[in-house]
Design a protein around this nucleic acid. Sequence first.
RNA 1: GGGAGCAUAGCUCAGCUGGUUCAGAGCAUCUGCCUUACAAGCAGAGGGUCACAGGUUCGAAUCCUGUUGCUCCCACCA
Length: 889
Amino acid sequence: MSIAKTYNPREVEDKWYQYWLENKFFSSTPDEREPYTIVIPPPNVTGVLHMGHMLNNTIQDVLIRRARMQGKNACWVPGTDHASIATEAKVVAMLKEKGIDKKEIGREKFLEYAWEWKEKYGGIILEQLKKLGASCDWDRTRFTMDADLSEAVIDTFIHLHNKGLVYRGVRMVNWDPQGKTAVSDEEVIYKEVNSKLYYVRYKVTGIPDLGVETKDSILNSQDYITVATTRPETILGDTGVCVHPEDERYKHLIGKKAIIPYVNREVPIIADEYIDPEFGTGCLKVTPAHDINDYNIGLKHNLEVIDTIADDGTMAPVAQFYVGMDRFACRKQIAIDLERDGFLVKVEEIKNKNGYSERTNAIIEPKLSMQWFVKMEAMAEPALNYVENGDVRLIPDKFKNTYRHWMENVKDWCISRQLWWGQQIPAWYDDKGNYVVAKTKEEALERFKIQNSKLSIEDIKQDEDVLDTWFSSWLWPMSVFDPSVCGKVGAKGNADVNYYYPTSDLVTAPEILFFWVARMIMAGHEFRGEAPFKNVYLTGIVRDKQGRKMSKSLGNSPDPIELIEKYGADGVRVGMLLSSPAGNDLLFDESYCEQGRNFANKIWNAFRLVKGWEVKTGTGNNQMAINWFDTRFNEAIIEIEELYKQYRLSEALMAIYKLVWDDFCAWYLEMIKPPYGEAIDSETYEASIQFFEKILALLHPIMPFITEELWHEIKPREAKDCIIIAKYPSTGIPNKNLLSEFETISELITQIRNIRNTKQISPKQGLPLAIKTTNDSLYVNYLSILKKLANIEDILFTQSAKDGALTFIVNADEFFVDLGENIDKAAELDRMTKELEYTIGFMKSVKAKLSNERFVANAKPEVVESERKKLADAETKIGMLKASIAALN
RNA sequence: GGGAGCAUAGCUCAGCUGGUUCAGAGCAUCUGCCUUACAAGCAGAGGGUCACAGGUUCGAAUCCUGUUGCUCCCACCA
């Protein structure tokens, strides 16, 4: 035979992907069909494919291919995200290697480098997706910084500003001193660390001067108040000391002043319920500029704000001391100095949490700064409603709780970033610091001129900052179709957006449920009055076998492309799907891909078998097998459809897997397989080809490559007759009778095979079978199958037990296999006695149940009925077992 | 600190409104097979007090309470 013994994915994958592209099978334009739309969660433009993408995009491709085969107008829109912080950090690093400093070359030049970088590496991840088989409409590929998408972002900003939802203000933000930008709360990762808690004394005023202070006099003095802090370097920015109003230890000090060491600033001692008297000394030093809680206390008590730490994390001039020293170096130094000067009482080791920047891993500095914000409260309400009333379905729905919690406790969204890579904020400042929001500089000038006619265009300057990346990606489901609808309420929009929006399914990770999914719902509601998608499938996190998140730094993430080369794209896709119910983290192990590869090989070999047959015209005697598989297929597809409907993809795959491997290969093909060298009748052959095609169609969304290859190998086809657009198998009504009959037969065959195995009888040796039954015709009908699969050479119907034969029972029928001499009476007796005991126990429990009046009275009639049947069956079985045991003795 | 969720074979997971067709699947394991589609395979088999303790019920893996262990989210006690 010329067909290779194993399936070789390399030879077919690129070929078919090209073929699909050339024939435009992925592309979609609006028409009269029902649309089925997915927008890709845009990966970072400079990113490379990781396992999370593999899982995510495999799922999307399964959904989109299935929809396409079901006759829907399937459209999967691909694209990338400009990912401002991540990309800018990469470009900065790249420039640094070349010895170039971002600040020196300036914004314009930097952006040139950045675009160059984007052009060079921007396409990589999308090319990798093609290897996976992703059937995206590549003509629709979008980038969040495409000119028209950027314009959409600007229009949106202006719209929200005009509506009063965007505002500018000084707020405490998470400052990343390395990236020198504010980051959102979601981009801060808290980690527990070992820290030191420093106890520091501040002198209290209003106490008579004791003259010259020495170290001893300070330590022994009662005129000091001791605060506890993990951040002594912020002492220089302290503007208050706070105690609990009910704290007896300090009540007498409230209203007095404390003096901050070194800077000798007098600050008020205030009282606030916020203070936990149990922690430290019960006295909090208040540094409004560098701690969010201190900031809030400061606001409440009108404390001064002194920002002692500069943008790069060093001590600022206002600190007066340690200026220019890094905040952590300063912490060490000031501790030494405080000790020396007698201010430091003691140091304790404690565990606390530090915030780290997700992008740069720098320790976040809470810092006051002027930023742009979006008011979230009003937008959150409708966004919550969509999910609450089911217009947007979260899968699995346990995420509803988390979603609700977030939406009910939403805080304003800081959208400005001190970066260059991104959409620059359309706010313009005059020489006095007044600002207007306008789309262009010219427009801004017009607006300024209303107030100040002398202003010229040279006098106004645009805001230096860019917008948070999510401020562009929250528009994604609209902007990929028609960017012009963003920023305009009630815009009609083009044909695309009207046809494809709202999209069908969104597949993404639960981590970004809030800062992406929720915000897309808000934006969709704002501009289209409709949520952007109907179902949100939340995938798990891909972890390694030990449950650790896969990451570059741990080196525990396999290279997806290498995996594809090793196991084939289909194998890897199966591997990804096999173990990942929605929302569950998936402990990835290459062996899943191996299982996928083996499955592909199994299908390949089933094809080799069928294709290798010589066909002779006529009919055979395989009608039973054909009818059975037909009905089994119908039964399976109902189950599979139900699983898909519930988005239980791994279970749907497993159902298909078993249908193919067990039912089709192990049972059906074995039943119809002609003896070696003999031809198969054309009737059986045709039926088998049709089954094969249906199976391939069912498999295609999951394993696109091998199915397309076999689709064409199995018979000659027209150029456009491809499985990718073939009709998805429809459901039929299964024949319950036939299925249960076959179950009996397969159980019988398994029992006989079991006898062979335990008695070490070669499959080549035919066995005689005697049956005690009231239903002879059942076994007569399946005679040829029994002969073939169990190698029964003779069937004899009998009314009495057969002496000296091995006995077993299936349903209510008794079977005897007479092996002549070699029967182990003791073992048989033992086996049957055990079965008898079990059955008697079983019968007793059923009897007890049935004799319980409350059971009979309360249980549903069908339950009682089934219990009665169980009892009858058990009684018959006991009778048979007893007879067999008696016969053995 | 607040909230959510989980705990079922060695591993990963199914078990919907309680009822021995409910104790399951796949992988792994064991035994026997190189049987001309496939050893990436075939045939068969063995694995579980359903975390623990109570309770409700005629009946609990399934419902309730508590305990223990784990995970995630939110808050961020200086």
